Simulated assay, not measured.
Amino acid sequence: MTKLTVEETNLLSIYKTGSRQGLIVAMNAALPFMDGEMRDFAARTLAKVERMGEAEFAVLPIYAADEA
């Protein structure tokens, strides 16, 4: 199982769309607008999500940012 940090989970909560593929699309669209360190962090986090299967992603404790 892929381990995510609190920071990675917080980042994913911003882009959670209800599906793994939707999150990947949303984060990829945002990457060009991020500054250096943030872009690197987001790209590393995105790579973790891309390596996950649907079942693993489905059980992650990630909530849409407006639900918190």
Rank of each mutant, 00 (worst) to 15 (best):
N10C: 06
M34R: 15
A30G: 13
I62Q: 12
L11R: 06
M27W: 06
A65N: 14
T45S: 10
L31A: 02
N28D: 15
Y15L: 11
A65H: 11
E8S: 02
D40A: 06
K48W: 01
R20L: 03
Y15I: 11
K16Q: 15
T2F: 01
I14T: 12
K3A: 00
M1N: 05
R51V: 05
A43T: 14
L11I: 13
A64M: 07
I62E: 06
Y15W: 09
K16D: 11
A68C: 09
L60G: 07
A64W: 14
L23H: 01
E54T: 07
A29Y: 09
M27K: 14
Y63Q: 08
N28E: 05
L23N: 06
A64Q: 09
M34P: 13
L46G: 02
F57T: 02
A43W: 12
A68V: 15
L11P: 14
M34G: 09
G22A: 05
K48C: 04
E8A: 02
V49R: 00
M52C: 01
D35W: 14
T9Q: 13
E56C: 00
T9R: 08
L60W: 02
D40S: 08
E7M: 02
V6Q: 09
K3P: 08
D66S: 12
E50V: 03
R20S: 13
V59E: 08
P32I: 04
L11Y: 07
R44W: 08
V6C: 09
F57L: 00
T2Y: 07
L46C: 01
M34W: 12
E7L: 09
R39H: 07
T45K: 06
E50Q: 02
G53W: 03
N10G: 12
V6N: 15
L46W: 00
Y63S: 11
E7N: 04
M27I: 10
I62L: 03
N28V: 03
N10K: 07
A30I: 04
L11A: 01
G53M: 00
A43G: 04
T17M: 06
G53T: 06
A42Q: 03
A58Y: 09
F33D: 15
Y15G: 10
L12R: 01
A43V: 08
F33A: 14
E67T: 14
M38R: 09
M52K: 04
M34L: 12
E54D: 10
N28T: 06
A64K: 09
G22N: 10
S13D: 13
V6Y: 11
V6A: 10
N10H: 07
